[in-house]
């Protein structure tokens, strides 16, 4: 396990930005660290759109928002002192299915599982995730990426930034 090889679970949210800022503050000035902003693209459910063009338009908007958030986080990490070549991005797309006649790709897929699989594959020793803190009722209904990562992560450290 290389603890200095850090990945930030990054979905573009304020929580993720906060996690990136925290990582910058902690390791920005320290030598030997690399930081990867790891995003799992969450495609919207095609069932929620009247046609393919509306679905594709929403995907494009989401991707543009994620791109802007990644750029900001990336710049923030470099500004915190990390060498430009020590900051990486890894964006893994969700399943890509044709709209017509396709069934949704979202049900049954877990962002936490995808993150952990990717983190293990890339050999990250530290996973950082921001969370806003959810109630038990919210966790029961909506699930929680951070709770699943804490529960299921193996062979690495997990930092939770609240």
């Amino acid at each position: 396990m290389n603890a200095r090889k850090i990945c930030i679970a990054f979905d573009g949210s304020d929580n993720a930005q906060r996690a990136a800022t925290y990582v910058g503050e902690v390791v920005g000035a320290a030598p030997g660290f690399s930081v990867t902003l790891l995003s799992i693209e969450r495609q919207p459910d095609p069932d929620h759109f009247p046609d393919e063009s509306a679905w594709l338009a929403r995907i494009k908007d989401d991707q543009a928002r994620l791109r802007a958030a990644l750029d900001a986080a990336h710049a923030g990490l470099v500004a915190a002192g990390l060498a430009p070549d020590a900051v990486n991005e890894l964006v893994l797309s969700g399943c890509r299915l044709a709209f017509a006649g396709a069934r949704s790709c979202l049900p049954g897929k877990s962002v936490a599982e995808d993150l952990l699989r990717a983190a293990a594959g890339e050999g990250f020793g530290t996973i950082v995730i921001g969370r806003r803190g959810v109630s038990k009722a919210e966790e029961m209904l909506f699930g929680s990426v951070s709770t699943r990562i804490i529960r299921d992560a193996k062979g690495c450290a997990v930092w939770i930034v609240e």
């Binding site: 919207p44 459910d45 929620h48 979202l106 049954g108 897929k109 209904l141 699930g143």
Partner: peptide
């Protein structure tokens, strides 16, 4: 009916 529950897609059904 359909809902956008990314991390727990069947949570509402179970509830």
């Amino acid at each position: 009916y359909s809902f956008e529950f990314h991390e727990n897609p069947f949570g509402l059904d179970l509830f």
